[in-house]
Design a protein around this nucleic acid. Structure first.
Lengths: 337, 337
DNA sequence: CTGAAAGCGCTTACAG
DNA sequence: CTGAAAGCGCTTACAG
């Protein structure tokens, strides 16, 4: 590994000049710059990032906090992979890399510090937080500490934090309007956990859209699920047991929608003839499962791109207030409506 | 941020002693060690990783190479998320973190160096490579350069490399034996791309199992797919057009199996009555899609765990030959057989 | 068991 | 436009 010193010797300049070529090239004469760059390639010089970080306090590393919930190790984001690809690509365009933070050693009084410590130790420039739906004190501690954070699907407040979500309320309204157009009047919903931001917003949008259309919503038409298959299944069974059962259901997540479909079929009913179903997310399975799940699609790559841009903006202009992003959703009509 | 110097002053010792407490505690007297540790917690001292890396050349960082194929940006591993969780957890148990390497700037003559450069710049201790099915010269360059590597589903040779795969041939044999038990004699296969290791091995296992059972395999019963839905669909159509069509199909990937099922239904035939289908992977959809896809399940978490262990072994005992791992597979019987 | 000192490879005012 | 020098926060022989 060639060092800056060797490169400087080869070029008969000081290491300061070499350093400038890579950090403030405009300060170096055209000719000298060219020569140094050429020799750098020839001898295979690469600046040592640890040394740079030590000297500048900037690591060009962004931490990724992701499965923060140790109580639910099997937790999966519906489209983590798409987010990661987009995030990684967008960040690398700004010379930033992603460091995956392990959610290790989460017990004891210092659990609250667990991500903050990683930030300090590795001099992380910022953090991207993919929420699992629970408010983790270790995550909240980051905002307090003034670490630039952008959270996905989780409201994190603070002068150095912002968040990216879908337009959850608007998406729910899309689903409701679609069902009304199809002639439905008795529309129920299977919600996500209400302590989660997407869960709460989708219900808010659902209620508002029904009210806007002048339809009444019996309270027994609102059943809380857990975003998972079994929760959707159980919720649907309760809805089917009602005296006046709904003719359509908006499930606030595709997995729950699929669980609901299963419950409908098990009850000897048909989708969409007896009960129509609309989901939310547009995960891969939605298109694959017969007869195709009608659902509110989220802009999966948009999450990653928007998160990267929000973070870069904060790193660059730390004083600006960070505006939250709400990504537009679209309705994908398939066979279940 | 407290530094080692401040901590040393607080404790009335030299910085060398403080350093030893964190690196070779057995060299420090019990009493001194205790005192330093207590004050460290109190003033919030955390060793600076950049400084450590600069001094020791070990970063405790493992690079993750993943979507190496820029020609196919939409490429998705069937179960990346499970692998990541397991990998991250296992690595963190050894004090290692994962750095996601962007596949950026992949053009020009230095494309071959693209991962190697990241290794050098960030002093990465090693690399985990999740293959996309193509041989990337930038990946091969790593093994040549003596970087500790462990690849998933890709054979990477070299004194500092090893790889983890499923027992692909054995898994294919499980599928074949199951179909034979179900009474099938005319068994076809939709293969993965033959330049990929899993694609080739699954076909090898398929052939061997049929031969072992004394069954003949007409060459037109072997159709190459691409691991994706459409490829499976197209391959199945060719099989159904045969004069003597097969009564069962082994698809070397679940997505292809689902595509095949679709082609069977489109042809007015039923699964499994007219044609039985077995897949490979056991992705989420396999259980969700009616009537449930019979498939060869891979040990998804095992990939991550085995990769971490192989890497740690190499980092620790660099001279030992690295034995490849073949993870056992299991047959999951559902409705398609 | 402990300390003084050199060194890891950079960046960046400060001077010229 | 360029160089000498101090400093970033650690580790680790070497001496005692």
């Amino acid at each position: 590994m060639a060092t800056i010193r060797e490169l400087a010797r080869h070029c008969d300049v000081s290491i300061a000049t070499v350093s400038r070529v890579f950090n403030s090239p405009e300060l170096v004469s055209q000719e000298t710059r060219q020569r140094i760059l050429e020799v750098a390639v020839r001898i295979g010089y690469l600046p040592n990032e640890s040394a740079r970080t030590l000297a500048t306090k900037k690591s060009h590393l962004v931490g990724l906090v992701w499965d923060t919930d140790h109580r639910r190790p099997g937790w999966r984001h519906p489209f983590l992979q798409e987010i990661l690809v987009a995030l990684k690509t967008a960040l690398s365009g700004h010379g930033l890399h992603l460091l995956m933070l392990a959610a290790a050693d989460s017990s004891g009084p210092e659990a609250r510090q667990r991500f903050l410590r990683a930030v300090r130790r590795h001099s992380l420039d910022g953090l991207v937080i993919i929420d699992n739906g629970e408010r983790d004190p270790a995550v909240l501690a980051l905002a307090d500490a003034g670490v630039p954070c952008v959270a996905l699907d989780l409201r994190v407040d603070g002068p150095t934090s912002t968040y990216v979500t879908s337009d959850n309320a608007g998406g729910a309204a899309l689903a409701v309007r679609h069902l009304i157009e199809r002639g439905h009047r008795r529309i129920a919903t299977i919600t996500g956990p209400q302590q989660t931001w997407p869960g709460a917003e989708r219900l808010t949008g659902f209620r508002a859209a029904l009210a806007g259309a002048g339809l009444v919503l019996p309270e027994e038409y609102v059943v809380e699920g857990d975003f998972y298959l079994d929760g959707g299944h159980a919720a649907m069974r309760r809805l089917l047991a009602l005296d006046e059962r709904p003719t359509a259901v908006f499930a606030a997540g595709d997995e729950m929608a699929i669980g609901a479909m299963r419950a409908i079929v098990e009850a000897g009913l048909r989708v969409p003839d007896d009960v129509a179903v609309v989901g939310f997310d547009d995960i891969d399975v939605a298109a694959l499962i017969p007869p195709g799940l009608t659902t509110v699609a989220q802009d999966k790559a948009g999450f990653g791109t928007a998160a990267a841009e929000a973070l870069v903006a904060m790193l660059r202009y730390g004083d600006e207030p960070a505006e939250p992003t709400a990504l537009p959703t679209t309705l994908v009509v398939r066979g279940t409506t």
